[in-house]
Design a protein around this nucleic acid. Sequence first.
RNA 1: GCCCCCAUCGUCUAGAGGCCCAGGACAUUGGAUUCUCAGUCCAAAGACAGGGGUUCAAAUCCCCUUGGGGGUACCA
Length: 521
Amino acid sequence: MTVRTRFAPSPTGYMHIGGMRTALFNWLWARHNEGQFILRVDDTDQQRNLDEALAPILHAFRWLGLDWDEGPEKGGPHAPYFQSKRGHLYRQAVELLLQQGKAYRDFDPPEVTQADREAAEKEKRPFLNIRRSLDLSDAEREQYLAEDRPHVIRFLVDRESKVEIDDHIRGHVEWDCGLIADPVICRGDGSPLYNFATVVDDAQLEITHVIRAEEHLTNTAVQAMLFDALGYARPEFAHIPFVAAPGSKEKLSKRTKKLEKYRTSPQFQKLFQIADDVLPKIGLKPGEEMNPVMVAYYEAVGFLPEAILNGLSRLGWSFDDKTENMSLDFVTEHFTLDRVVKGPAGLDPDKLLAYQEYWMGQRSVEEKVDACLPFLEKAGYIDSPIDAAEVRFVTHLVEALGDRIKLFSDILQYDEYFVSDADMTYDEKAFEKRLRKPEEAGMLLREFREELAAAKSFDADELDALLHEWVDSKGIKIGQVIHALRVATTGKPAGPGMFDCLALLGKDRCLARIDRALEQI
RNA sequence: GCCCCCAUCGUCUAGAGGCCCAGGACAUUGGAUUCUCAGUCCAAAGACAGGGGUUCAAAUCCCCUUGGGGGUACCA
């Protein structure tokens, strides 16, 4: 049998990183088995513009390279793939249950049910529906219906039985149905509830494996009963651990209140800091839809899809006891459900950054340049359209930067190569330490300036030789002048090799900046 | 309250009775290299939640306790 898995996002306008991990595991299982991966949109409560709310989600899938075989924009043999357009299927299923006496119309107003529930809790016993509507005579029932009395439809749980499933990850799990309240399957307005719609859809879409986060485990009892009652074959279940907030075992949440907490968490704050530093520069705003809980954030600040995929794959799954860096192809080949762990896995920003460094190291200079250019352009550091000279310059910069570029947006930290000599800012502390404090700094810098001015070539290797010969001839150490030179020309205490920096800037800019620094000492 | 799930270094994990006085990775700390930073290399520190069983032998199996988490909706 062909393996068919699905991911069913609600069109909310953003893609949660934890949801992405669930989607990834579904995708992996389908691809590993040469099966199909289906995207179905759970838009039962359609309040906003669907296209607008769905676009960022589909974009996240595309960015990561997770394709779907059936679903929005693609269609498929079981279309439509939007729950809002599948009403007839749910109605048909409800009708069937009603006819067979497996579901009933519950005319109890919500307040009554609520009171029953509170009474149960007070007495420390599990809540079970009183099922008053079951005692109605046919005549009464017909009268209620005729007068359009509001009611919901509940599934009639067989309290004598028990439900059991054999979950791929949790193993054997069972529930005593005598403890399960009759779930509402249709609202007062006739619309289906998630638990019900999902069963009808999974069956109709011929889903073979339901892989979802652990928070749905409890729902599975009801869903399993529903599959059985409707005469559908049950899919296999795999309840994977949810993605926890960094340093915790709590489900990673998108709620604003939690976001504020994450922002100050020692493990998480690094990623928020990146957002605060980078996003404003490129015209984006950190906020509810752009933060480290959302996939869009990672793309926006210049993470590599490979790194996110690698990090997400290793969240709750491992290949063996040593392999850490894995491509999507590698994971696809080796992904199995039995290697998924049971405990919740905290998202680890440091580890994510480490994967990022690894995958960035696999990229060629050209690839890095291509990805850095848009950041420079959006930040206004280079003009658009970008001309060939700028591409050449950025290529040299990226070469000089080497491993220092971890995120593509890191290029924005090197603004000194894009601003005018007059606009470059000096790091105050560095200026003090390297230029004002050492007594000989100004003098040495002034002398070496003349060497630079006379230099025939401004190539890094020759500059290297020039400075070395000069310090040798003066009998001083390179450290006595090079730091002053660095701060004077770049404004910063740290950066690429000094001679790369000088070569990058060129003679005129170096001299102008040295002159400016000398004046300010 | 009730139901369900989970439990190895700070974090992600390896471990399916002897190979484990527990392995790897990230983070941390020290050292080496360099003009700084990044990187790289070397090294160190760091865990089987507790208690009972079962067994010749338990991180691994069973039970209890504790702790953590999820669900308890006319949300998904």
